[in-house]
Design a protein around this nucleic acid. Structure first.
Lengths: 206, 206
DNA sequence: AAATTATTGTTAAATAGATCACAATCATGC
DNA sequence: GCATGATTGTGATCTATTTAACAATAATTT
């Protein structure tokens, strides 16, 4: 199990590397990769050490190989199936956003309680009634949920999600969710993040 | 200057506290606040210690007072003015989201290059041409920018933003931005977060 | 081919962050 | 009023993460 921050950075490195590859770069030095992030060369080397990849010494890392190795770490064999729960403004935007990106993360279904949305295709993905959550999650083997429901129903919907067998949640709502230990939770709270920016701006940050 | 994680948690506590206040709760124990987050009572007390607030011993924290003290730490006197840069699907959803919330963070303006959007009111906020960035930022004293432009123009727009005098950026794009030291940057990358969830689900997390 | 240089991989040290342990406090019951 | 019990505030400890330091390596120069 890798350190959480390392996992985040690997994801970021990969995107930079894909970009570099497109630009025809075949090798990259740790300090180059570091400069493209807010990062030091040592940190990059340490992260890459964690995943057990070793470079062509003195030539830098082979871009294509490194992308592959990061892929082996981050991606699941057949990709991971994801549902978006709550398809209001934010849910729609997020769905569109993810559907646009090529990735091993497949947005398979969306859920809502609004009858005008159910059974329609929204942002390219079919919307189902929340009451069919368990059924759909099981039949499509969905393991991750993106929570974009209103704050008022967040807790209740979370129980249903957990009950349906979801093993990871990315929570866009402002309500801190309570989930069992075997369900990974990523709080992804815009207000907190913006307030954090505000605080460090106010305090003349570091 | 408070620890970054403490700042995040204070923002979260405050929202929980406001909720508790609405429910008529006047006092709250550290373990109660902890249970509402993914957190321990000690951590809560430590965080509150950082901001120098002391409770009614044995009665818990005074909810209203604590909200005020957190406000003094997190909020700026007159609130902070914010611009959303790039008003596509995501930018619109984010704008609507923030405008909806009462807060000391005022979304004052949005920017885009699309002439069909410029000078119109979108999600309740006026959209200006990106070319007027500096002018508007200065006249409205905007200090924080939310970046929701396409990845392809992220770097270029960032230079303009920094040049216009913005002191904090919340970056929704997948491109890691390079900013000077006196500009606080919060990378808020959905793909990274979702890939992180996927990794920990795959690895049967902690 | 020896010396120089740039770069990596990794051990050790430093820093940041979370938790433990417990004295101090004070409401409550006796 | 004294003992009890619940809760806080905080020094000490522990864990996670980052950074420093440097030997090992191999391309490049001389």
């Amino acid at each position: 199990m890798l350190p959480e921050r390392t996992v985040e950075r690997l994801s970021e490195y990969r995107r930079t590397l894909l970009q570099s590859l497109e630009e025809g770069k075949t090798h990259i030095f740790s300090h180059e990769l570091a400069a493209l992030h807010h990062n030091t060369a040592v940190q990059v080397r340490r992260d890459i050490m964690f995943i057990g990849y070793t470079s062509m010494q003195r030539k830098g890392y082979d871009v294509r190989d490194l992308i592959d190795v990061i892929g082996e770490i981050l991606d699941s064999e057949k990709g991971l199936n994801v549902a978006v729960v709550g398809i209001g403004n934010l849910g729609r935007a997020v769905t569109t956003y993810f559907v646009g990106k090529r990735s091993k993360l497949n947005i398979i279904a969306t859920f809502d309680v609004d009858h005008t949305k159910i059974e329609r295709v929204i942002s390219g993905v079919k919307c189902y009634s929340l009451s069919r959550l368990k059924e759909i999650v099981e039949s499509y083997e969905i393991s991750v949920a993106i929570m974009t429901v209103p704050a008022t129903s967040a807790s209740e919907v979370t129980s249903q999600i957990v009950d349906a067998g979801i093993k990871g949640i990315m929570n866009f709502t402002t309500v801190p969710l309570i989930v069992p230990d075997d369900c990974y939770l990523e709080e992804y709270d815009m207000i907190t993040s913006l307030e954090k920016v505000a605080y460090f701006v106010k305090s003349g940050q570091s």
